[in-house]
Design a protein around this nucleic acid. Structure first.
Length: 273
DNA sequence: CTATCCACCTGGCGGC
DNA sequence: TGCCGCCAGGTGGATA
């Protein structure tokens, strides 16, 4: 489900709903997601206030009390919802139930269980193995044209997989990779080093596609919903993703789809060379 | 080291 | 209607 814009949209909804609430009771309805829950997961969180909810890459970070951080990842199918009271019955795949002292309930549902939740300490958060190897945030200054050029020159892999590499830059997934490359007019199969001189345009395109998607509340394919239950709108702005055989909006050439390292990839054979 | 493949899961959809 | 194969927004470990 979620690339950076969807995770940011969820973060925003969680922040509005949960900031300065206190956790009363945590129920794990199974023992693991993609990885096991830490042993004292519930016990650590219970009784503590949620003071902030931030995001690093596609990870949500719930700051809890003075020292603890709940790290959550939505994987492909994870969703958070906030209910006004404990539901009479749970849905299939409601794996984590977090009851708040004000009576509301935060539920994490994840059919495929590619998501995860774990705990970290605030003062060593960025040293946590899940976070320590991540590249720069695409919307921040350290993702610069100069940085990108230097990294692209080191790599022989196709540019599409390169911009999806979370060590190079975080947050770009399969949809926005295709969309960003359409904006710059680069064929996804070209090697990273061969397009290193397009660094400036690439930075701009990645920022634009992610920024515009955040402004639209993310993209809703299949099952992405915001915490409020609303869907995002950015799927209506896709230029290439999911449009195989349909005319390019710029030149009317049919959009082509292919598979690159197991992922569906879309591009305009005319506009992207 | 780098680059590619595949497994991890479930559900939804189209085709027969 | 029912079954089957294929597909899905991510990640990391295995393999060459």
């Amino acid at each position: 489900m979620p690339e950076l814009p969807e995770v940011e949209t969820v973060r925003c909804g969680l922040e509005q709903n949960l900031k300065n609430t206190t956790i009363k009771k945590v129920t794990l309805r199974r023992k693991n997601l993609r990885i096991p829950f830490p042993e004292h997961f519930a016990q650590t969180l219970e009784g503590q206030p949620i003071t902030a909810i931030t995001r690093r890459a596609k990870y949500l970070l719930f700051y809890v009390g003075k020292n603890d951080v709940l790290i959550a990842h939505l994987g492909m199918s994870g969703r958070f919802s906030v209910e006004n009271k404990r539901p009479a019955a749970f849905l299939p795949h409601d794996h984590v139930v977090i009851e708040l002292t004000d009576g509301r309930v935060l539920i994490y549902n994840d059919a495929r269980r590619f998501g995860l939740m774990t705990l970290a300490q605030r003062n060593t958060l960025h040293e946590h193995p899940l976070l320590s190897e991540l590249g720069p945030e695409p919307l921040e200054k350290d993702f610069s044209a100069q940085y990108l050029k230097k990294e692209l020159l080191k790599r022989n892999s196709p540019i599409k997989s390169t911009i999806m590499d979370q060590q190079l830059v975080v947050g770009v997934g399969n949809i926005y990779a295709s969309e960003a490359l359409f904006l710059v007019g680069i064929n996804p199969q070209k090697s990273a080093k061969s397009v290193a001189d397009r660094n400036n345009d690439l930075v701009k395109a990645i920022r634009k596609v992610l920024g515009d998607a955040i402004a639209s509340g993310g993209s809703s394919l299949r099952d992405f919903v915001q915490v409020s239950g609303e869907t995002g709108y950015f799927q209506h702005h896709f230029n290439v993703y999911g449009r195989a055989g349909k005319p390019c909006f710029k030149c009317h050439t049919p959009i082509r789809s292919t598979r690159m390292s197991g992922r569906s990839t879309f591009f305009c054979p005319q506009c992207q060379s």
